[in-house]
Design a protein around this nucleic acid. Structure first.
Length: 1116
RNA sequence: GGGUGUGUAGCUCAGGUGGUUAGAGCGCAACACUGAUAAUGUUGAGGUCCCAGGUUCGAGUCCUGGCAUACCCA
């Protein structure tokens, strides 16, 4: 039941049904517009800016989205409590490959159908329709899980306004000279004449075993003729394009004196030491070098020198095949992180035009590519787009590097190049090599890695600044910022912006036919004006953007818009789309349609104070936000970021629909409730760790934490209603005059507020949740309520009872607020239960209680004056003593109901008489002991043991530690007394005297002869187990109270009902009844307690084998 | 192959700056307690702190090198 069972000031409930009360709370929020109110209340407060990373709504949300969104929600709610204005605008990412693939799947088409069987217009219309198909499900999850977000005014990346803002950013990059056309190495099929996506390369069957001619080439050192670097390649056709050699920095290389096997000339060659066995036989190592004759089977060799790769870096060599000269500083040895000694020579041939690693490392180290001018003057590689060598490679001009034309007489270029190298003393070994190589799925021909034109953002120009500004960002966890992100930034390459696709933001660049003029468009107005001019020149029949007309900035429309260059000649748009990641990275600007609208809002909300997404966004959204902000605003885009880990299944495996281990968030929330789900996810592990999601653990959180808190409230409500307790925050019992126990929990409460505030402000929600949970379960419920409950039970309202009520009420109210960022529903439910019945009375005072929602409240300030570390310490001592007494009672089989005469506690530096006296009453009643006695070591009644305190002795003793420890263990009782009395003692260690102090040893009581003893650390408790007749009688009385209370409960009496008791006469019990009858009556609210001979009754009670009939009557 | 995490009880996790008996919860077993409790208390079983070296009087903690696993990038 979530409905209150009675109309009372503090509603009471039979049980706790999470989905039901969450539905009730959600309806309340929506009806009363609490989210909107939480913004309105802070309308003039300083802003705390949060950016929502836009999800793609073309798929169902998963449980990991609940994780990410809980984190976001927590800090937005916390900052609102702290008095900030926190706008949260929803957003949707709508472009990109996943949408395209999904549409192709649902339409049953492939990319090559686009433009033939389906028009680009229809295709894009399908994408637009599909991409938000699950938006309703996402919105539903957002509501169900209690994530507060402005869902009514989202930014959507496919809208014209959004695209216009993106264009404006691109134009600013253009104006700064940061947008340029260049090339990257991409898989390319010469036979098909097209580039292939990585997705196409992963189609089954693309990688095949092939035999190629591999070549280990000799590159001659410029400053040491006769000395060569050996480099191995499976693509000899790339050797004319060689521009550098790469070595591993920490790999060891050997210089070997030997002979070339083809020319038989004496040479010295460099290769990795680990690769020697692959090139030289062990038997030949000792052969006499000068004795070698051409044709000898074994070629002698000898190591003459070794160096590490980093020492070789910078050495120069002569170009291997000098057909084309580069412009720049080529033919150097450089360091590459990809170099291994798994195969080859440990030295890698670098052809920047034909390898992705090659190009990357060449760009980093300033190695030029070997290119020739294309007909249009731009540089092109030594192989053309059909896969043929260009004419400048004279020996092989016009020949296909692989057999792309199915020519039956095809002669391998690789083989011919190797023959040439052999002749010129440039090949050390040539052999067939079998390996996996990707093939084009359309033509079955091997692909080439080939430079293809793309548009780039020159991010490298701002690399240093990006690194520098990154250091000012607070990363959670820090390692993601310094490591994964920071180190990557330091090795940043230019951002390839181009995508050859259909559904996305078109690159707003127009070029004339001979590519001598280009224009970048930065707004609709600018484009409209350009089109107007084109219309005037007769290049366009009419202006598609003229005022009042609907238009779409996507393909294919934008492709049809022709502009004019300075000569009036047509300019066409570059066909590329831009990387979708630019879309989302542009959201700080584009979500407000800046700069065309909302300039003020943008300025106020940039940069963000906080963002949070999965760690997989590090090089995605986190990077694009950062890059755009640094390049255009010289600013970070966010000050704090939480990069959360993955949600795995309970075995630590990745969740996937295919494996069937994915958890449905809707089902989880409907079964367990949003709050237990949220709490579990946050409490279980820090968000930046991967979460092993175990759904059973949510049930545990529900029972343990929420159940305990519910019961604590239920206890309060039960008695507060009976006593008609009204919390009046204008008039409470001063803390100073509250009892010890109350002051203790209030002190703990304010320590908790400070701790939780610190954790939230440090973006560590897990520690916050754990602290709240520990306080609620261990301190508030299991100690405070347990010890204080008798104060609520009996009699009229006294200052003591008033204090108990107020203290418990305050604790519950503050806990509701502290937990509200993580568990917004339960916190609200608790807050409303505590305050709804007081609302009207609070209004005139305009006090905090007048607020209808905990989410509208202001963070409770820590009251340092009520904190008392000494009080907290001695209560902890009391808790430990009680724990030891319970342990002793267990061991001696004397249960708590049996009163015992006394316990004895040896005093120590920390366990003082003063401390014990302050908490003695609590201990006595909690463990049912009549007296607490104390003693010092002087009486000699304890058996004591002394242990060295290594922490303090360590610095003093150093290497003599072991001897000192032995000397201390050997101290006798007299020595200990001397140490305790004087506070210091001269200790003999290996002939030297060291003065040790009390702090340097730990004196523990081992045993108290004649008593039952138990110890924990330096705390020892001894229990007197002597039972007197009086103690027995009192124990029996307590047993009777227990049986009668249980019976009352079984019979369904209310806690306030008064009764009359009749029971049979039992001689064993008479003494107890005579002495403690009044006590029994008092405890059981009995007006009368009579023994009746020969009583018969359905009810029986039993104590230690003695049974008796009993009857309880309700007294009116 | 590179980068970054993680590795502690059957499970989920704590264990500032090194200190000698490594903790909690869950689960399991037993016994208690309960007029708020769906709880709780006590006791017990359960650990090569991933491995190997090193530094140190002393390493779960620091260093080096591995192994396993996850993510990102090649």
């Amino acid at each position: 039941m979530s409905q209150a069972t009675t109309q009372t000031r503090y509603p009471t409930y039979a049980s706790l049904d999470f989905p039901a009360f969450e539905t009730y709370i959600r309806a309340f929020w929506e009806r009363e517009r609490i989210f909107e109110q939480s913004l309105e209340r802070r309308a003039h407060a300083p802003a705390f800016t949060f950016y929502e990373g836009p999800p793609s709504a073309n798929g169902q949300p998963g449980i990991h989205h609940v994780m990410a969104r809980t984190i976001k929600d927590i800090f937005c709610r916390y900052q609102t409590l702290k008095g900030r204005l926190v706008h949260r605008k929803a957003g949707w990412d709508t472009h990109g490959l996943p949408v395209e693939l999904q549409v192709e799947k649902s339409l049953g088409i492939t990319k090559k159908d686009i433009g033939t069987t389906i028009s680009i217009a229809d295709y894009n219309a399908a994408c637009r329709r599909d991409v938000l198909q699950f938006k309703d499900r996402w919105d539903e999850l957002t509501r169900l899980m209690g994530y507060w977000l402005d869902l009514d005014h989202p930014y959507i990346t496919f809208e014209n306004d959004y695209i216009e803002s993106v264009w404006h950013l691109l134009k600013r990059l253009w104006d700064k000279g940061l947008l340029y056309q260049g090339y990257t190495i991409q898989p390319y099929s010469p036979a098909a004449g097209t580039g292939l996506s990585s997705h196409e390369l992963n189609l089954p069957g693309c990688y095949r075993e092939v035999k190629d001619t591999s070549c280990t080439a000799q590159f001659e050192r410029s400053d040491a003729p006769g000395e060569y670097f050996l480099a191995w390649t499976t693509t000899p056709w790339t050797l004319p394009a060689n521009a550098a050699l790469a070595v591993g920095a920490s790999i060891d290389y050997a210089l070997v004196d030997t002979y070339n096997p083809y020319t038989h000339r004496r040479i010295r060659v460099w290769l990795a030491q680990d690769r020697l066995p692959a090139y030289f036989s062990a038997e030949a190592a000792d052969l006499d070098l000068p004795a070698y004759q051409a044709g000898d089977k074994r070629i002698p060799w000898r190591i003459v020198e070794t160096k590490r790769g980093e020492e070789l870096a910078g050495l120069r060599y002569a170009q291997l095949l000098p057909y084309v000269q580069p412009e720049g500083d080529a033919f150097r040895v450089i360091v590459g992180d990809f170099v291994t000694t798994d195969d080859g020579t440990g030295i890698v041939h670098i052809a920047p035009t034909f390898g992705a690693d090659d190009l990357r490392v060449a760009r980093q180290q300033g190695i030029p590519a070997i290119t020739v001018p294309a007909p249009d003057g731009s540089p092109m590689p030594l192989v053309d787009r059909q896969g043929r060598f260009v004419e400048q490679v004279t020996d092989f001009a016009g020949r296909y590097v692989k057999n792309y034309t199915d020519d039956p007489d095809y002669q391998s270029v690789d083989v011919d190049i190797c023959i040439l190298l052999k002749k010129e003393n440039k090949a050390f070994r040539v052999e067939k090599y079998e390996h996996n190589y990707p093939h084009c799925w359309r033509t079955d021909k091997p692909i080439l890695y080939y430079p293809l034109d793309s548009w780039f953002i020159r991010t490298t120009a701002y690399r240093e600044r990006m690194v520098e500004l990154n250091r000012t960002i607070r990363w959670k966890p820090e390692s993601t910022g310094t490591g994964r992100f920071g180190q990557w930034l330091e090795n940043l390459v230019d951002w390839n912006l181009s995508r050859s696709r259909y559904w996305g933001v078109p690159l707003p660049v127009w070029m004339n036919e001979d590519r001598t003029e280009s224009k970048c468009i930065g707004s609709v107005a600018e484009l409209r004006a350009e089109l107007e001019r084109a219309v005037g020149l007769g290049l366009m029949p009419e202006n598609p953007l003229q005022e009042g007309r609907d238009f779409d900035l996507h393909r294919p429309y934008v492709d049809e818009w022709i502009l004019a260059d300075s000569q009036g000649q047509p300019m066409r748009r570059e066909p590329d789309l831009i990387d979708v990641w630019f879309d989302s990275g542009a959201m700080p600007f584009a979500q407000w349609h800046y700069p065309f609208e909302n300039e003020d809002i943008f300025r106020r909300s940039f940069p963000a104070d906080f963002i949070a997404e999965g760690v997989d966004q590090t090089r995605g959204w986190f990077f694009t936000l950062h890059a755009i902000a640094v390049l255009l605003e010289d600013s970070v885009a966010f000050r704090t970021v939480i990069a959360n880990g993955l949600v795995l299944d309970k075995h630590g495996n990745k969740m996937s629909k295919r494996l069937g281990n994915a958890v449905d968030p809707f089902e989880t929330i409907q079964t367990y409730g949003a709050d237990p789900t949220r709490w579990y996810m946050i409490e279980n592990a820090p968000p930046w760790e991967n979460l092993k999601f175990n759904i059973d653990s949510i049930g545990e959180v529900q029972r343990k934490f929420f159940g305990t808190l519910f019961n604590t409230y239920a206890f309060f409500a039960l008695y507060a209603n009976i006593d008609d307790f009204v919390f009046d925050d204008q008039n409470t019992v001063p803390y100073a005059s509250r009892p010890e126990l109350d002051r203790w929990i209030v002190s703990k409460l304010h320590s908790l507020i400070e701790a939780v505030d610190g954790y939230y402000s440090d973006y560590d929600p897990t520690r916050a949740a754990r602290a709240i949970q520990e306080f609620t379960i261990d301190q508030l419920s299991n100690w405070y309520v347990r010890l204080a409950r008798r104060r609520f039970w009996k009699g009229e309202m006294t200052p003591d009872k008033q204090s108990a009520y107020e203290t418990l009420y305050e604790c519950l109210l503050v806990v509701a607020q502290l937990m509200s960022p993580i568990a917004p529903f339960f916190a609200e439910w608790l807050y409303k239960n505590l305050t709804d019945g007081l609302r009207e009375a609070a209004r005139p005072h305009d006090s905090a209680l007048a607020l209808p929602s905990v989410h509208l409240s202001d963070w409770t300030p820590v009251d340092q004056s009520v904190r008392d570390a000494e009080l907290e310490a001695r209560m902890e001592l009391a808790q430990n003593i009680c724990s030891l007494v319970r342990s002793l009672r267990k061991r001696t089989r004397l249960n708590i109901r049996q009163p015992l005469q006394r316990i004895l506690i040896p005093l120590t530096a920390h366990i003082t008489r003063q401390r014990l006296e302050a908490v003695a009453d609590l201990i006595r009643s909690e463990v049912n002991i009549k007296a607490i006695e104390t003693a010092t070591g002087d009486e000699g009644m304890f058996v004591r043991q002394v242990k060295p305190n290594f922490r303090t002795l360590g610095p003093k003793m150093g290497a003599k530690m072991k001897a000192a420890a032995a000397a201390i263990a050997a101290l006798d009782a007299a020595a200990l007394r001397k140490l305790e009395a004087a506070g210091r003692y001269p200790l003999q260690v290996e002939g030297e005297t060291y003065e040790i102090t009390r702090e340097d040893v730990e004196i523990r009581t081992e045993d108290v002869p004649g008593w039952a003893t138990a110890s924990e650390g330096s705390l020892t408790v001894a229990l007197d187990t002597t039972l007197t007749d009086e103690l027995r009688a009192e124990g029996l009385a307590r047993e009777l109270v227990n049986r009668i209370q249980n019976l009352r409960k079984d019979l369904g009496f209310e806690v306030t009902d008064r009764i009359a008791i009749e029971m049979g006469f039992r001689p064993e019990w008479q003494n107890a009844l005579a002495q403690f009858g009044v006590y029994i009556q008092h405890e059981t609210l009995a007006e009368r307690l009579d023994t009746v001979e020969g009583l018969t009754s359905d009810q029986q009670i039993e104590i230690e084998g003695v049974t008796s009939p009993i009857q309880l009557h309700l007294v009116r």
